[in-house]
Write a protein that binds this DNA or RNA. Structure first.
Length: 463
RNA sequence: GGCGACGUGGCCAAGUGGUAAGGCAAGGGUCUGCAAAACCCUGAUCACGGGUUCAAAUCCCGUCGUCGCCUCCA
């Protein structure tokens, strides 16, 4: 089956054809680095990783660009409120530049721990101010801007099909508007360049043809994606929350300047739900990947958990379901490890797998097929080689995984030895008491034909 | 208030017209001194009420419930 993807722009499943032979340009909206990423954010980057790996699985070379938003993202999409970076800096007592660096590194570490492939290009908004200014100048030349006392704005009324991506009902928006529009002519108009406040100096500000200030949030993605991928490229993706405002405005900017809708396919990952509610940063406390690790979970258990649902369905996070993912991943790893050295892969199974992932990245079915493979009658070497091919998309690092070689404390080893002696003497009561004691100390003793095996118990301390 | 999505076994979830994938948990079994691990087996008619159809979880209408965007969000 050829790759089919759900394109939000047309609201339909479309067969994927690259614009250039064997090459895919893909832009994924990255983090605003004013705080840590929570596991809901990370779900979206996992979806994008499955997308990229599936494209590569189909033989395409992917140029994957991810931005780092380190300026211009206000605490309100209504073009009011503070810049998130400056606010984060003030809260932390550090400079905005330091904040950006700290959270950029933290984000990259999360990505690495989840086995998400590094983008081909990371690009920071503050490294591309000039490109953004040029882009705004282009929009201005085409007559889509106006200037107010606080910035340069995009005039959405000049674009007849503004909001097509989101199927925005402009009338409805007018009626339901709950925000002050200030000097904006329409609630959907948005800032391209904001002027620095007159009474104080911002940490991040630049000269521009319109005055000292900083770029609006949406312009960075249009400017950088065009810069690295061209005026019309293959795929643009992000979280579902970006459909209404951010991606709608990116398209508006690009249509004004170049007459394109920026990307051929628009893909959106849906939200992780936490106890039936969206996980949000503003709620204060939120779950980070590090939180999961602190509770004894392997980060890849979270990756595996995210494969249990389709990317276009909400996924409900519970500790119980994370446990399920952790246990089953562990079982899968041991199975695959025990298959030994890989032989030649089975092409029929590889094609079945391709059919699943090519059907709009149906990871749940791809995983189900993986379990089916483990139960099949294929020789171990063939299963092993085949599952390692699957793992090019699954990204679980199955080829490298080894059972942990643990240092068992001397005192536990002594218990094991004493228990063996009791067992030889058929003193079962004594043997069971010793096993219980080891268990209290956090170690499990399992008897195998090769003798006793000692493992540390899983640590799981949940909130 | 406007727009949109969803409601499948204990939990997480596939499936969008032809009599319900998978994982975890649970119960039963094989193995074991007993366990553990492993392996085998077992269970849902798809929120509710109508309708369309030879046939519906899958299409239509209504009701209830939950959630998302419109306000920081991936």
């Amino acid at each position: 089956m050829k790759l089919r993807l759900f394109d939000t722009y047309t609201r339909s499943l479309r067969e994927f054809e690259p614009l250039r032979k064997d090459y895919v340009g893909m832009y994924a909206c990255g983090p605003t680095v004013y705080d840590y990423a929570h596991i809901g954010n990370l779900r979206t980057y996992l979806f994008e990783d499955f997308l990229r790996r599936t494209l590569e699985f189909n033989g395409y070379t992917v140029k994957h660009v991810v931005n780092i938003t380190d300026v211009g993202h206000l605490t309100s999409d209504a073009d009011t409120g503070e810049d998130k970076m400056e606010k984060g800096a003030r809260k932390a007592g550090k400079s905005a530049w330091e904040i950006a660096e700290i959270f950029t590194q933290a984000f990259k570490e999360d990505i690495r721990r989840l086995n998400i492939k590094e983008p081909t290009i990371w690009c920071r908004a503050t490294d591309h101010i000039q490109e953004q200014i040029e882009f705004i100048k282009c929009i201005e030349r085409k007559g889509f801007t106006y200037i107010t006392s606080d910035g340069v704005y995009f005039d959405t009324s000049k674009l007849p099909d503004y909001g097509y991506l989101a199927r925005l009902d402009k009338e409805g928006l007018q009626a339901g508007a709950r925000v002050e529009i200030g000097e904006k002519r329409s609630p959907t108009d948005f800032a391209l360049w904001k002027f620095s406040p007159k009474d104080r100096k911002r940490q991040m500000e630049w000269d521009s043809p319109w005055g000292v200030g900083f770029p609006g949030w949406h312009i960075e993605c249009s400017a950088m994606s065009v810069h690295y991928l061209g005026e019309f490229f293959d795929i643009h993706c992000g979280g579902e929350d970006h459909i209404n405002v951010h991606h709608t405005n990116e398209i508006a900017q690009t249509q004004a300047c170049y007459g394109t809708r920026l990307a051929n396919f628009w893909l959106h990952g849906h939200f992780l739900q936490l106890e039936a509610e969206k996980m949000s940063k503003s709620a204060g406390e939120f779950l980070r990947l590090q939180t999961l690790i602190d509770h004894g979970y392997d980060p890849l258990a979270y990756r595996f958990f995210c494969m249990s649902a389709h990317y276009r369905a909400k996924l409900n996070f519970t500790w119980e379901s994370l446990d399920a993912a952790a246990y089953s991943l562990d079982r899968l790893r041991n199975l695959v490890y025990e298959w030994g050295e890989p032989g030649a892969p089975n092409q029929e199974w590889v094609e079945r797998f391709r059919n699943e992932v090519n059907d709009d990245l149906n990871m749940p079915r791809a995983v189900a097929l993986t379990w089916e493979l483990t139960k099949s009658d294929l020789p171990a070497a063939e299963k092993k080689a085949t599952i390692l091919i699957f793992d090019q998309v699954l990204g679980l690092g199955l080829a490298e995984w080894r059972p942990a070689e643990e240092q068992i404390p001397q005192e536990v080893m002594e218990l094991v030895e004493k228990r063996q002696q009791a067992r030889l003497a058929r003193n079962w009561a004594e043997a069971d008491a010793l096993r219980a004691k080891a268990s209290e100390m956090g170690y499990e003793i399992e008897d195998t034909p090769q003798g006793p095996r000692v493992k540390r118990k899983k640590v799981q301390v949940r909130p």
